[in-house]
Computed example of a mutant assay.
Amino acid sequence: MSVFIQQLPALLGVVIGALGSYVVVVRGDQARFRREQAARWEERKLAVYADYAHSVKKTVTVSFRVAAALGVDPHPDPLPLEEAKPLLGEATSRRDPAGEALIMLGSTVVVDRARDWVMTAMEMERFVRASTRDPKAWQSLLERQRAGREGYYTAVREDLGLPPGHSARWPSPAADAVPAQR
């Protein structure tokens, strides 16, 4: 029995070492799992944020083209309203589910900025659907849309922990510099 007692400290050391190793491995695995899970959620959020931006931008781009056909925007590819109606409907159909995903995964600030941007895009759509020919009102909508987009992208970058990005504001030709469309 005295041999067992002599070996007991070594045996206890092995048991304590094994338990310590187990705890370290388990904690490391848990930390790695949390990091990987957070990265997956960040990837999903980025995909949702980008998808929503594309869906809103589709409405904006078609609105630019119709406004060019109305003679109030310098877009180089004018599109008559009748041809644009299916594209506007498609953009709305795509934006609605993208908006639901955004509400589900987006931060409160991102969702609020998205709402600001999309409300202006919807006003732009109403403007062109009404065949309004008011260049000053259109320019006001353009500025609000640009500010809304910039606010959305800023909120997305902050939510994802990304550095500030480009404002995407660059000069464009004035609408009154475009020859009137028939």
Rank of each mutant, 00 (worst) to 15 (best):
V56M: 12
A50T: 14
W170V: 06
Q145K: 09
P86T: 11
L160F: 03
A175R: 10
S21N: 08
E83K: 06
R65C: 02
E158L: 12
T92L: 13
A114T: 01
G20M: 07
A68T: 01
V24Y: 13
S131T: 12
A114K: 01
A121T: 02
A114F: 05
V110Q: 05
V26Q: 11
A174H: 12
A101I: 03
A180C: 07
V15L: 15
Q145A: 10
L79F: 12
H54P: 11
Q7Y: 12
K85E: 15
R146T: 03
W138R: 03
E90H: 12
W138M: 06
G151T: 06
P86K: 10
L142D: 01
E36D: 15
Y153M: 12
A91D: 05
L11E: 03
D73P: 00
E82A: 15
E82T: 10
A18Y: 12
A180F: 03
A121W: 00
E158T: 12
P135H: 06
A50M: 14
T61M: 06
P78G: 02
A101K: 09
A84N: 00
A175D: 10
V23K: 04
G28I: 04
A147R: 11
A130G: 07
V110I: 13
V178G: 02
E100D: 13
R35A: 14
P9I: 03
R126W: 06
D73H: 01
E100C: 08
R182F: 05
M1I: 08
Q30E: 10
V56S: 06
R126D: 04
S55V: 03
L160I: 02
D77S: 11
G148P: 02
A168Q: 11
L105C: 05
R27C: 14
R133I: 07
L162W: 15
Q145H: 08
S2E: 15
P173C: 07
E143R: 13
Y152C: 03
R65I: 00
A91W: 05
R115D: 05
R115Y: 07
A47M: 06
G13T: 14
H166Q: 04
V24Q: 04
L88E: 03
L11Q: 01
S167G: 08
S63Q: 04
Q37P: 00
D134P: 03
H75T: 01
D159W: 02
A50F: 15
T154N: 11
E90L: 13
P179I: 09
R115G: 07
V72D: 02
V128K: 04
V66D: 00
T120Q: 15
K57P: 03
V109N: 06
A39W: 05
R169A: 08
K58L: 13
K58D: 14
L46P: 01
S63D: 11
E43R: 10
E43Q: 09
D176S: 08
L105F: 11
V60A: 08
R95Y: 08
H54K: 11
Q139Y: 08
V26N: 04
A69K: 11
V66P: 00
A155P: 03
A177G: 13
L142M: 13
R32F: 05
V110A: 07
V111Q: 01
P76A: 07
I103T: 14
E158V: 14
R133K: 06
V3I: 03
L162Q: 06
